[in-house]
């Protein structure tokens, strides 16, 4: 068991926090707060090493996914961050075990304009396609990846679509009409109606 919604509501001693601290110590990183999720930030030069430790010593053999986040104060689409952030590309990689349900999300900060990191392909072969995706969507260069070519997009596509600086063309043409959700939520008193019997029988 990792968490339940009720766990998150009560700030009692959390087994997850203990585990996060353990992982951080083992890989030489620091725990980043995240809800119901163990997130450990490691320095970029320890990226491959940390994941190797995770696989070999922590038993996190299951490669779940790898992707990135573009932290940027100037955004073309969507909302900018609540408060000013340090501009960077945050690389995220989640690995898990296949027995107890432990999972850890590793993260590392890369340079915003020239993101470079070592490839995980020797540690987890499954990282192949995920790194290709991250390369084409964020422009992250994975050193040691043998086949860094477009995965989804056409070969001659220019730009990194998931960067915040990449405009969404359809939004440029016509502003999004559904920005505000128009459907109202149920009123309070109507919530209580089906309590005595069990409808649906």
């Amino acid at each position: 068991m990792t968490t339940s919604p009720s766990d998150t509501a009560t700030p009692t001693p959390d087994p997850l926090a203990d585990y996060a601290a353990q992982v951080a110590e083992a890989v030489g990183g620091e725990v980043v707060p995240a809800k119901a999720t163990v997130k450990v930030k490691v320095p970029t030069d320890r990226w491959v090493e940390a994941l190797t430790i995770a696989r070999d010593e922590l038993g996190l053999v299951f490669f779940s996914w790898l992707s990135a986040v573009d932290w940027s104060n100037q955004v073309e689409v969507g909302d900018p961050p609540e408060e000013e952030v340090e501009e960077r590309i945050e690389l995220l990689c989640t690995v898990a075990d296949i027995s107890d349900g432990r999972r850890v999300t590793f993260s590392t900060d890369l340079d915003h304009d020239q993101p470079v990191v070592d490839s995980l392909i020797d540690v987890y072969p499954g990282a192949d396609w995920h790194e290709r995706e991250t390369w084409e969507m964020f422009g992250v260069d994975f050193v040691g990846h043998p086949n860094l070519v477009h995965l989804y997009l056409p070969e001659r596509f220019i730009g990194n679509p998931l960067r915040k600086s990449f405009p969404l063309l359809s939004r440029e043409v016509k502003p999004w009409p559904g920005k505000v959700d128009v459907e109202g939520m149920p009123e309070e008193e109507e919530q209580e109606s089906p309590t005595t019997e069990n409808p649906g029988r």
């Binding site: 995240a34 809800k35 119901a36 989640t94 999972r103 309070e188 089906p194 309590t195 069990n198």
Partner: peptide, 22 residues
């Protein structure tokens, strides 16, 4: 299956507080 309401109380316009989770 128990009886009871189908919805928790949520604000009309849903804003999710700052944070991250998987």
């Amino acid at each position: 299956i128990p009886s009871g309401p189908l919805q928790a109380k949520v604000p009309k316009v849903i804003k999710v507080p700052k944070g991250e989770t998987y």
